[in-house]
């Protein structure tokens, strides 16, 4: 029995290198999102592309992106990008955890259900951020930019889903080999 357990452990693959690569890439992606916010087209309202990638990876490939990675990426980004306001980490973690509980066995779900789940996740995330912001600053905020961000992200989701699923398939399979 003890021999079996010993060899079972020895056979396990480590996903650490994959997780580090994914985390660094996603952090770079978040910074890129900030960078394109300077363009006139997106001023202050870039689509939440990185959040969409978080969603796909956490649901379908949790080995590539554990919640600890999400936490580290978003904390670093919160501190760098906003400096004064750190609710993004909490909002993203809560929305991803709720969605993980709501969608069991995502591989067996229709794409439409996954898309609906994304809409729910993004609404939970933004609602938490908006409520925290309003309590913190005791003022109503301008929702125009946020609604634009949410709308564009929801429309972009199918493209992001297809691209990330294919890329993740390649990387996770090569890590498993």
């Amino acid at each position: 029995m003890s021999y079996e357990v010993y060899f079972q452990k020895a056979r396990l693959k480590s996903y650490l290198s994959l997780q580090v690569i994914v985390a660094v890439s996603l952090f770079g992606m978040l910074l890129f999102e900030d960078a394109i916010a300077t363009l006139d087209l997106f001023l202050h309202a870039t689509p939440f592309v990185t959040f969409a990638i978080f969603y796909v990876l956490v649901l379908f490939y949790p080995v590539a992106l554990p919640l600890l990675s999400v936490f580290i990426i978003t904390v670093l980004h919160d501190i760098f990008a906003t400096s004064l306001y750190n609710s993004q980490t909490f909002a993203i973690l809560v929305s991803l955890l709720i969605i993980k509980r709501l969608i069991n066995f995502p591989e067996q779900k229709e794409f439409l259900e996954i898309w609906q789940g994304f809409v729910v996740a993004i609404l939970i995330m933004v609602s938490i951020e908006v409520v925290t912001f309003m309590i913190w600053h005791w003022s109503l905020m301008n929702l125009q930019g946020l609604l634009f961000q949410i709308g564009i992200t929801i429309l972009l989701y199918p493209f992001i889903h297809v691209v990330i699923m294919r890329l993740a398939q390649i990387f996770v399979e090569s890590a498993e080999r």
Binding site: A37, H44, A45, F80, A81, Y85, L146
Partner: peptide, 9 residues
Amino acid sequence: SAPGGSFAH
């Protein structure tokens, strides 16, 4: 850096 997002500028 960018002027910020919807929550902080």
